[in-house]
Computed example of a mutant assay.
Amino acid sequence: MKETRSRKGNLTLISVVGGGIAGWIVNFGLSILSNSDITHLYGISIFLGVIVGLLWDISDKLNRE
């Protein structure tokens, strides 16, 4: 049972980090496509990506139960 708890914690961490990376990639892609400097929005996009990762993890846990 201890392994299951640590595995769920690791999946939450992976969701948060993955969401942050996805937010950064989306912002980077948009800056290339729009030919404008939107690097000041990196923090916001990473934060929103982390929120999406947490929501993804919460919905996954709710659907399992």
Rank of each mutant, 00 (worst) to 15 (best):
L54W: 02
G29D: 09
T39G: 12
G23T: 11
F28G: 10
E3N: 12
L13F: 06
G18K: 10
R7A: 03
F47R: 10
K61Y: 05
L62G: 14
D37M: 10
L41E: 09
G29W: 06
T12W: 00
S6N: 13
R5Q: 11
G53Y: 01
K8F: 00
G20L: 07
S59I: 05
I25Y: 14
N10F: 01
I14S: 00
I14R: 02
I46C: 06
V26R: 03
T39H: 04
R64S: 13
D60T: 07
N10K: 03
S34V: 13
W56V: 03
M1P: 11
G29N: 03
E3H: 13
I51K: 04
L55D: 01
F47N: 05
K2Y: 07
I46D: 12
M1H: 10
N10A: 15
S31Y: 14
K61P: 01
S45Y: 15
T39M: 11
L33E: 11
S59Q: 04
G43W: 04
G43A: 09
L13N: 07
I38Y: 10
D37Q: 10
R5M: 15
V17L: 09
F47C: 10
V17H: 02
I51Y: 06
N27M: 08
K2H: 11
V16F: 02
K2I: 06
G49H: 00
G49R: 00
F28M: 12
S31A: 12
T4F: 00
V26H: 08
L48Q: 05
S45H: 08
R7M: 07
T12S: 02
S45I: 04
S36D: 14
L48S: 13
E65W: 05
G20V: 09
V26S: 12
